[in-house]
Design a protein around this nucleic acid. Structure first.
Lengths: 329, 329
DNA sequence: TTGTAGGCGTTATCAC
DNA sequence: GTGATAACGCCTACAA
């Protein structure tokens, strides 16, 4: 079944390809009679213009790549969802990739951009040292990740969030506080750790961070969390680097007979809508995802239009007041 | 800045376009000297082949559209994530759309397929009566939704799930059981309701279903859930149409001073990895998402290769044994 | 108001 | 081993 093309419509309607194209794009002067003729030919043949041919001509695809470590985690799910909605309103569709800490996959997506398959890229992954990013002037925006000096980065105030969470826990009597974070040393998420460490040191407390990456299997995460309790029997609080860790930690603790918040305080990070409603008792640092994604889209448009942008955009965090951060007795 | 193209590489290397193309695609006989010349020209210019031009020629994009009501809900998040991973392994990238019960958006995505921008489509949305689907022979696969007779549908055994959940609740002493489901009357999710209603009737109990669609704002969901308790003060169990509803219902109940499972039993549906770990106490009907997505990808490939498929594929469900379905005293 | 011709960047075909 | 040429399906000058 050969594809029906402009030419077939033109033949059937008894006009030229140009005329059909004009009808399709509502351009130029056309008699109503011609318009009707063409439209009925289009309907009769069930013709649909080939987007790819159009893209080739315009060197624009109206496609944006979104690269995240995973989209099954609620934080990245909501992030992807918001980005898709906002981009769709502006006429873009999105190609979404789970990079699962796989640098090759990330390079592959980057090549799509370089190969003109997408007009721009929003990256939220945590791989690093990918040479392709060195190229200048690519329309790329990063969320919560550092790529290079030329790429604008959007983040919540990670340092402040780390500080706030840790201060809270200490105010409520915690002394042996464990933190979880990701392994990527250049990720802005490390600032959560820095905030935590600064406050711990100020209070003469010893800080200790466990690495739990986003995209490892759940069983592995649970093992790591269990290990925290085994290796730190005196632990009295956890500042989790994200809400999934926090929620899992709550379950692991419960299974070990540790009751929250009586024996263990917990504060998470992210504060997605899902977690705030499914686990409202979890106190957590909230990132303003709606504003952050809004800016990401705006910045990307600026970059695609060749405009300059600042390098860093930091959004203030807030705290969701649950009950896991204060001893209630 | 004009794009660097094949021709530029050819000129710099002192060969023809054909030769460059051959080097790029590892096709035909080439002398090592030529290969080296071409490669160094490619590097020098930072050339990347234009995917769109290639797509035009091959009339294949290696892009698959995925259309879901939302991707911020864990069920659809995991669904999208699994599909992306499996498709990527086969050389496809995915364009993901949240249709948010917006038929226009759904039509828009369908047109991408018709316009050759994507090679196939996987739909999991719940809109209906979209005439474009009437066209035959489109490579489309549906998950948990009915489109038409020509499109294969993959689903968990919804009827059995509805039955199992309701039987469980009744066995544990529940008599006034409320169900939640979506408004789309043609969705296979309605079979969960049918299973529920059949068991209720068999036990001489009155069934009552509340409509809670996927993509309405969280506040609205909470209002609807609250309403259930207001209008049914004697309620002693809920069979929620999905885990998000179930989790939210648990919170709403708790706020009203109703304790679970003492005063109210709850069973959900979906059993995503996230929910099983964040809220392990929630008893829920588990869909075998990994198998379902695996099949979806296989079926889509069959359809893209013009092969026939069966119309319906139903996967058996299992139950996640939490503690919200049995009175523990 | 409508038509002709050329080109977007690539690959396939057929020569040499 | 390598090169010229046409074709993928569309749009946009430029003509008429």
């Amino acid at each position: 079944m050969p594809t029906i093309k402009l030419e077939d419509v033109a033949k059937l309607a008894g006009v030229s390809k140009t005329t059909v194209s004009r009808v399709l794009n509502h351009r130029g002067y056309l008699s109503q009679a011609t318009i009707d003729k063409v439209n009925s030919a289009i309907n009769e043949l069930g013709y649909h213009p080939n987007i790819v041919a159009r893209q080739l001509l315009k060197t624009k695809t109206n496609l944006i790549g979104i690269l995240l470590p995973t989209i099954s985690d609620p934080f990245f799910g909501e992030l992807a969802s918001l980005l898709e909605k906002k981009l769709y309103k502006k006429g873009y569709k999105v190609i979404i990739g789970n990079s699962t800490n796989d640098p090759d996959k990330e390079i592959d997506y980057l090549n799509q951009l370089l190969s003109k398959q997408v007009d721009g890229l929003i990256v939220g992954t945590h791989n690093q040292n990918i040479p392709e990013y060195k190229q200048k002037n690519l329309p790329i925006v990063a969320i919560d990740r550092i790529v290079n000096e030329d790429i604008p980065i959007i983040e919540s105030d990670n340092y402040d969030g780390g500080k706030l969470a840790t201060e809270r826990l200490i105010e409520n009597g915690a002394k042996r506080i464990i933190h979880t974070n990701v392994s990527q040393r250049e990720s802005p998420m490390q600032k959560r750790r820095l905030g935590y460490e600064a406050v711990m040191e100020l209070n003469d407390l010893e800080s200790k961070t466990y690495i739990i990456d986003f995209d490892i299997p759940t069983t592995k995460k649970l093992n790591l969390l269990n290990q925290i309790f085994v290796e730190n029997p005196n632990i009295d609080a956890i500042f989790a680097g994200n809400d999934t860790d926090a929620a899992y930690a709550m379950q692991v603790a419960q299974k070990r007979g540790i009751s929250i918040p009586k024996d263990l305080l917990i504060i998470g990070y992210d504060g997605t809508e899902l977690m705030r409603n499914v686990l409202p008792q979890l106190t957590t640092i909230v990132q303003p995802l709606d504003e952050m994604t809004e800016l990401a889209v705006d910045l990307l448009e600026s970059r695609m239009n060749g405009r300059d942008t600042r390098h860093e955009y930091i959004y203030p965090i807030t705290i969701w007041e649950g009950s896991t951060d204060k001893r209630t007795n």
